[in-house]
Design a binder for these strands. Structure first.
Length: 636
RNA sequence: GCGCUUGUAGCUCAGCUGGAUAGAGCAACGGACUACGAAUCCGUAGGUCGGGCGUUCGAAUCGCUCCAGGCGCACCA
């Protein structure tokens, strides 16, 4: 029979060495006083190796970055563990002997940091002195801005959201929005200057479809006259276009046309095509209709963006950028990167790079999708002088983005290497992919409303905030509903496809946003009580609280890892790292809370210590959640 | 066909830059509120890490191969 781990939340962080190339980009190396424990142990071990084995320690495999230091598994004695196997062969010593020698030296040379060691098989387990942990706690427990780092000169733009203006936002957009926003915040917190941008796909045949349908069927109705939110209003006409089109196609097929012919020749499609041409020719009536309908959509989008907390430093509009890039095509021809075929179309040959020949300009001289992106990249650089440019785009476009970057590199654009496709997987339902035609698309506004309703029901049921006024209640429901939704979509590795189970999403227990929010509210309740009772800020006292108890230490050790969690999230551009971490923090606190009394601690010093732990926990939770775009309530 | 990608407990996911006996949440079952907030906590049960071969002191993790799913390879965007 298998044994369960007793420690319910041992966060087994590996603390791998971050590549050297990463540091200049983050900051200068962390300052010693802000350095976490693993980054302190590393040079000490390295030094010990050099002292003990001067001849061998300079050989490959002995560098600081090659050391594997992991958190000690709970079933063994110790806090952090050095893996010895990699030295064994080179030094021709048994792991036991090696571990003993290194352990002895470390304790002798750094008694303030290490108090004990043991060697089991090839692992050297080191016990880190309590004062290190309590020192960390005292230095940080009151820091409400924990995790924020000094600025550095890098400029980054993050493009995300990027909707079409012919239909409302759905679940997929939400993943995109939450991801982009969160990654931008993570970059900011770690010191970068970040600009958020969006590209609004506001032109093209799809836009004309909803316009045509509105002209034909709306009878002059508007969002105002119907009370329907603008983006939904326009989206309804886009859907209606599809319905009408289908009818016409069926009719034409009965008359003997092939499916392709029928789809092309259906009158409503012809009308849309004509409208597109008129639009491109600047036909005033079409333009003004287009402006009017897009205006409705933007009104709706803005409402949703405001609700979900998405914000942008600059919006680009495809209608204003779709002609960009033609100059780049000329430039590319001049540089010999592109070539023109006899029919006049322009191509790039990427077969040497394992890709295909790609068209960059049609034979009629009009641009294709990639042409616009070339132009937009250039324009963004002109305006922002970015060092890195993130594109939050679904993984369907991996190939496209690869090509984009490669072309820019071949054109020797200075910004080409800084282009990074933050690719994310589709959101699916348990029944499979969302499909417009089958009506299985989960609308963003709908799901948020539904979650607010659940938040309200649950809150009323529990009756803990009966004294809240209507405004406070509304804010609380917003906080909980969006917290649940954002956490649900961000807790999974962005690269992976994910399944959105509606039933799970309204569950506020376990690995969820509300669980963490609840933990925060609970801590705040204790801290409020303490302040009322004493009317004092927390003191800084480190006298006589005795050795740290396992639950106290476990939580401090976990909190101490916050900075390396941020490093990892930044390195991987991955908010889920933070989501998983903050969940562990909340869970570990809840266990701590159950086992140990704070207010009625064994001694005043213990009480002080635990209040500090509680305070730091609340700050780390708030700070982590803020990076995910999730608010944490004082009460709920 | 070629390229990319995914496969871990009934379900949803961690762990994947190789390290000790593979972890959570949900669902199931059983417990804990006359002491800091039970939206909580504790326990039980549940895994040939898709299959095979290889590299290694050590493989869920790396390589090869097979199987199964997804995406892409438009003069669409």
């Amino acid at each position: 029979m298998k044994k369960r781990q007793t420690s319910n939340s041992h966060n087994h962080i590996q603390s791998k060495q971050i590549p050297d190339s990463f540091w200049p980009f983050v900051n200068s190396q962390p300052k010693p006083d802000r350095m976490n424990i693993v980054n302190r142990i590393r040079p000490l071990v390295s030094k010990a190796l050099q002292e003990l084995y001067p001849g061998d320690a300079s050989t490959p495999g002995f560098a600081e970055k090659d050391l594997t230091i992991a958190q000690t598994k709970p079933e063994f004695e110790g806090d952090y563990t050095l893996v010895l196997f990699s030295f064994v062969k080179q030094l021709k010593k048994s792991p036991e002997q090696l571990g003993k020698e290194i352990g002895e030296l470390l304790i002798k040379s750094s008694p303030e940091l290490f108090t004990a060691y043991n060697v089991i098989k090839g692992f050297l387990n080191l016990k880190v002195a309590d004062p290190y942990w309590t020192g960390f706690l005292q230095a940080n427990f009151a820091d409400k801005r924990i995790g924020i780092r000094p600025s550095n000169p890098h400029r980054i733009i993050v493009e995300y959201s990027s909707p079409n203006t012919n239909k409302p936002l759905h679940l997929g957009h939400l993943r995109n929005n939450f991801l982009g926003w969160s990654v931008a915040e993570i970059l900011k917190t770690t010191g970068h200057t970040v600009f958020k941008t969006a590209i609004l796909n506001d032109r093209g045949i799809h836009i004309c479809k909803s316009m045509v349908a509105w002209v034909l069927f709306a009878g002059g109705a508007t969002p105002d006259s119907t009370g329907i939110k603008g983006d939904h209003f326009v989206g309804d006409y886009y859907v209606q276009f599809g319905v009408e089109h289908k009818k016409e196609v069926e009719k034409l097929m009965l008359e003997g046309l092939s499916k392709e012919e029928a789809e092309q020749q259906a009158p409503i499609m012809q009308a849309a095509q004509k409208m597109l041409v008129d639009w491109e020719n600047g036909e005033p009536e079409v333009k003004s209709l287009w402006e009017k309908m897009n205006g409705w959509v933007y009104e709706g989008f803005n409402e949703t963006y405001k609700k979900i907390g998405s914000d942008f430093d600059k919006n680009y509009f495809e209608s204003q950028t779709y002609l960009l890039g033609k100059e780049i095509v000329e430039e590319g021809i001049a540089k010999g990167v592109f070539f023109r075929k006899p029919d006049g179309s322009v191509w790039i040959d990427l077969t040497a790079d394992g890709l295909d020949e790609k068209l960059v300009l049609r034979k009629d001289g009009t641009s294709v999708y990639i042409t616009q992106d070339l132009g937009l990249a250039d324009k963004k650089y002109e305006e922002f002088q970015y060092d890195q440019s993130f594109y939050v785009i679904a993984d369907e476009q991996n190939y496209h983005m690869k090509v984009l970057k490669l072309i820019l590199q071949k054109l020797q654009k200075p910004y080409a290497d800084g282009i990074y496709h933050l690719s994310y997987g589709l959101v699916e339902l348990p029944s499979g992919r969302m499909k417009t035609r089958e009506g299985t698309v989960v609308d963003a506004d709908d799901i948020i409303e539904e979650l607010k309703l659940v938040a309200r029901q649950k809150t009323e049921e529990l009756g803990k905030v009966k004294d809240f006024n209507p405004g406070e209640l509304k804010e609380l429901y917003d906080t909980i509903a969006l917290g649940a939704l954002k956490f649900f979509l961000l807790r999974v590795d962005p690269k992976k496809r994910m399944v959105f189970n509606p039933e799970e999403s309204i569950d506020f227990h376990g690995f969820t946003g509300p669980f963490i929010q609840y933990t925060h509210a609970r801590i705040k309740s204790i801290l409020r009580k303490q302040e009322e009772a004493r009317n004092l800020e927390l003191g800084i006292g480190d006298q006589g609280h005795g050795p740290l108890l396992p639950k106290e230490k476990e939580l401090i050790v976990l909190l101490e890892q916050y900075s390396s969690v941020l490093d990892q999230a930044l390195l991987e551009h991955n908010p889920s790292v933070i989501a998983i971490y903050v969940f562990n923090v909340a869970k570990t606190f809840n266990t701590f809370y159950t086992e140990l009394s704070i207010m009625n601690a064994e001694s005043p010093d213990k009480k002080e210590l635990r209040l500090q732990i509680a305070s730091l926990t609340a700050n780390v939770i708030a700070s982590s959640m803020a990076l995910l775009g999730i608010r944490v309530p004082e009460r709920m």
